[in-house]
Amino acid sequence: MRSNALSYALSTHGCSGYQTINEGLPFSIFEQSLPVWQSEVYSQILKLLQLEENWDSYGAKKISISAAKAMFSVLSNLMLDDTPPPTIVPTSSGVLQAEWHTRNIDLEMEVISDSVIDVYFEDHNSQISKIEEELRVDLTKLGECIKLLTSRA
């Protein structure tokens, strides 16, 4: 059974775009008991895929399907079932950034491709040192950040 957020996304944006996005993803949208973050991220990205060229009024590019897939792929590898859902924002270059500003943590990850991620992490409780770097292939550091974000009440 789909979550409410997912049903809303489907009814708002139609199935065709949704099916296109879902191709090749590491999980099925029709799986039962989707983690909250998955359905929320789907819903947000579907909305962002509707943006027209120049959506920021300064000449921003349209968000590509490949950018959406890359974001899903990276999140699926890193997120735990109970990780709070991020806010997904579009960038002027046509890719996506996931952001969390909660639990005394600021985490931003711009997914440039499946294996290149620009990360900013700051823990205001100083359990993990500040990170500001482009990660390639090895996402261990980012995984640690997400674990901390998930575990902190």
Binding site: D56, T91, E99, H101, E110
Partner: peptide, 21 residues
């Protein structure tokens, strides 16, 4: 100008603010 899709909730400050992007 900040488009609405680039405004994020910051629970650490309780405010809505523009994303860094």
């Amino acid at each position: 100008r900040v488009p609405d899709v680039q405004i994020v909730p910051d629970d650490n400050t309780g405010e809505l603010r523009p994303t860094s992007k």
